[in-house]
Amino acid sequence: MNKDKVLQLLEENARYSYEEMGVMLGIPADEVEKIVAQLEKEGIIRGYKVIVDRDKLKENVVSAIIELKVTPKRDLGFDEIAEKITQYPEVEDLYLMSGGYDLALLISCETFKDIAMFVAQRLATLDSVLSTATHFVLCRYKEKGLDVHFSQTDERRNVWY
């Protein structure tokens, strides 16, 4: 149960210290540390990353969601091609989907052309890929549960009772 609470806090903000989490949950800091270590050991926590508002950075970033239709391999299903695609550092997310296509991936590169090249040279050429459809991201509104576009203002200025 404390495990769930610690995870919930970390998912909210992975930078809370053990002590801060301990205070918020009413358990000792070293207990929190033990729980986190255990979660890491079990592979439940796979890593910690930062959520960046890329639009605020000077450098160019273009992202696209790419749909792939592929032929599954006997015995291996979709895992074989998924493993290959996972290796590309440009690929941020990769999912096997139900519905009209098989794999969905989110990739980010510097230019539109880079993405086009990636699709043409790296993806379309894979043996089992039947077709691709590339959808460019025009604007990011929300990422990992965080509003990364609109700045929320506190409108509560009127009553202090």
Binding site: D154, R156, R157, V159, W160
Partner: peptide, 20 residues
């Protein structure tokens, strides 16, 4: 306090009596 705080920039208020 409320009037002073509302006339200032960059105030960290811990004043309100309603949920966020």
């Amino acid at each position: 306090y409320f009037d002073i705080a509302n006339s200032m920039e960059d105030v960290i208020a811990l004043g309100v009596g309603e949920p966020d």
